[in-house]
């Protein structure tokens, strides 16, 4: 289906920004540090021209993507073993479920304790956060429908061929979902690690601008973070769609 441009929705968005501007300017919304959108736009300009934004964005992306890439390797490998080898699953799944219940953010202080105020802390936190969705989605993706496996048996495929031609393609859509979720949580947790741990990147930029009482620049940084998340998500989806066209359709992911 061709997507039409949602004029109404865009108008409402612009209208909301206008209303925000008006309410702040007329002091109906009266908070000491709530900037109107024009001041936020100005703040964005300042951050870009001073070079702070580019540097912080680069640092955060590096940490988040490194952690995510490590998690993708480890998660897909471990998830495949857990999904395919029944005894391993039986003797470890409950441990994983127990560990998963631990709120991920509570690990940030532990990581800071172990790795200090360094970029390693950020990468470890991003890795740990992204590992869960990737691992769990890979495990459930590898549990292929028995009927698909039966057709493999009927065609007398070897074990390796069954793995390569049936199991892996069947799991692709689920793994991609895991990779997407993992990317967005690794970005969030990198920001947290920067706020409480390593003083660098967008997370620290937010805290710093807050302490310097620069709400315009601070809101601008939040805006950049939001846009970054949207772009990263779109990139993963686009890459997945290019690489595995057929498999993606099976989970209905294409339509979203």
């Amino acid at each position: 289906m061709a997507r039409r441009i949602n004029v109404l929705g865009a108008a409402v968005f612009v209208l909301a920004l206008g209303l925000w501007e008006l309410l702040v300017r007329t002091s109906i919304l009266d908070f000491a540090y709530l900037p109107p959108p024009t001041v936020v736009a100005q703040g964005l300009g300042e951050l870009v021209s001073s070079g702070e934004l580019g540097e912080a964005l680069g640092h955060t992306l590096f940490a988040a993507l490194s952690g995510w890439a490590l998690a993708a390797l480890a998660g897909v490998a471990a998830g495949s073993v857990l999904g395919l080898v029944r005894p391993v699953w039986m003797y470890s799944m409950a441990s994983l479920e127990a560990l998963r219940a631990l709120p991920i953010v509570a690990f940030v202080p532990v990581a800071v304790l172990l790795f200090g105020f360094s970029v390693q802390t950020e990468i470890m936190v991003a890795f740990y956060a992204a590992l869960w969705p990737i691992l769990l989605n890979t495990i459930s993706g590898m549990r292929t429908e028995p009927r698909m496996l039966e057709s493999g048996a009927v065609l007398r495929l070897s074990r390796a061929a069954v793995l390569w031609k049936i199991r892996l393609p069947g799991a692709t859509a689920m793994i991609v979902v895991g990779l997407r979720l993992g990317l967005s949580v690794s970005l969030v947790l990198t920001l947290v690690a920067e706020m409480v741990g390593n003083p660098a990147g967008l997370g620290f930029l937010l805290v710093e601008k807050g302490q310097a009482l620069q709400p315009g620049q601070m809101f601008a940084a939040v805006f950049v973070i939001g846009v970054t998340g949207i772009i990263l998500n779109a990139l993963v989806m686009g890459a997945a769609r290019l690489a595995f066209r057929g498999q993606m359709a099976s989970s209905g992911e294409v339509s979203s």
């Binding site: 540090y33 967005s184 706020m195 937010l206 807050g210 709400p215 939040v222 939001g226 998340g229």
Partner: peptide, 24 residues
Amino acid sequence: ALSPSLEFLRALPAASLVPVAALV
């Protein structure tokens, strides 16, 4: 009418809202 605005709000990670909310 609402979904683009809602989608944008949804894209803001909770973590980035913390310092902002604390300041405001």
